[in-house]
């Protein structure tokens, strides 16, 4: 019991825990649509692009968060646009846009070595630095996107599963896809402080993939992915505290362990079904 209560003796822990839960749920839910669009690495791409906005913001004395928001939204829209271009596959669009923006940020940093730009927090996250204003931002983003998902569920699910069909049935599919990319960019930006740029893709893709192993309907799959993402954040935060490892990797490892268990269960279930079928036809 002490293992569960001890972390709360530290002021930062509740903030970190809540931030992790919101980020896990938000990225987990959005991840289902990302995986369905076969753009699993868009989270990684968007987060890498952040440096393209953070570096110029820091060097200009602007709030780095604003730079991150701007760069991520620009990257999202560019990936969306370039990926629709004939001859450019969506995965190639992610690679092109994110690496170019990342290179732009690195180039700026390297050209200004006399000015300190701390990339550690950006790359690996700094959950110890999360305060109440961060929680408010993450919670507000989660709430806004949850409401948007509720209201636009029908056009969103139609577009994500069949964009051409949606267009032909009166849905502005291109607008829906662009709006989804902006929503994802917002989720990435608010998640960076918790998990860091390098591990964003994991919190987007793993809970969604775990959920899809068993889900047969989109609504329950999205809800389960959000729950799995939040659960991985809780487990990861406690592990991080007690084992003294960084929170981002701890959350991702917890999520990965959940996926491994689900994969084993899914495989066993398939084997059992085959055996039952063989027995029935023996």
């Amino acid at each position: 019991m002490h293992l569960l209560t001890e972390p709360f003796e530290f002021a930062f822990f509740p903030y970190a825990l809540w931030a992790g839960v919101f980020v896990g749920a938000l990225c987990g839910a959005l991840g289902v649509f990302v995986v369905l669009r076969r753009m699993s690495y868009i989270g990684q791409g968007l987060s890498q692009s952040v440096l393209g906005g953070v570096a110029p913001a820091v060097l200009s004395g602007i709030d780095p968060y604003l730079g991150a928001v701007a760069a991520t939204i620009v990257a999202g829209l560019l990936i969306n646009r370039v990926g629709r271009q004939h001859g450019v596959r969506p995965d190639a669009a992610i690679g092109i846009v994110s690496t170019v923006l990342f290179a732009f940020g690195v180039a700026l940093v390297s050209a200004n070595r006399d000015r300190a730009v701390n990339l550690n927090d950006l790359l690996f996250g700094n959950i110890l630095g999360v305060d109440s204003s961060d929680i408010t931002l993450v919670a507000a983003t989660t709430a806004v996107l949850a409401i948007a998902g509720f209201v636009f569920w029908k056009p969103l699910t139609f577009t994500i599963t069949d964009a051409a069909g949606a267009s032909a049935h009166g849905i502005r599919a291109a607008t829906v896809e662009a709006a989804f990319t902006i929503a994802l960019a917002a989720a990435v930006v608010v998640s960076i402080r918790v998990v860091g740029v390098l591990l964003i893709a994991a919190v987007i893709v793993i809970p969604a993939s775990t959920s899809r192993l068993f889900g047969r309907s989109l609504g329950p799959v999205v809800i389960a992915a959000a729950a799995l993402g939040a659960a991985a954040a809780v487990v990861g935060m406690f592990v991080s505290f007690h084992v003294e490892i960084a929170s981002g990797p701890a959350i991702v490892l917890a999520s990965g362990a959940g996926f491994a268990l689900a994969l084993i269960a899914s495989t066993l279930s398939s084997v059992l079904l085959v055996r039952r079928a063989r027995a029935a036809h023996a």
Partner: peptide
């Protein structure tokens, strides 16, 4: 999904 454009926003 054929009703997605005209159905209620829930």
């Amino acid at each position: 999904h054929g009703l997605a454009a005209s159905s209620r926003r829930v």
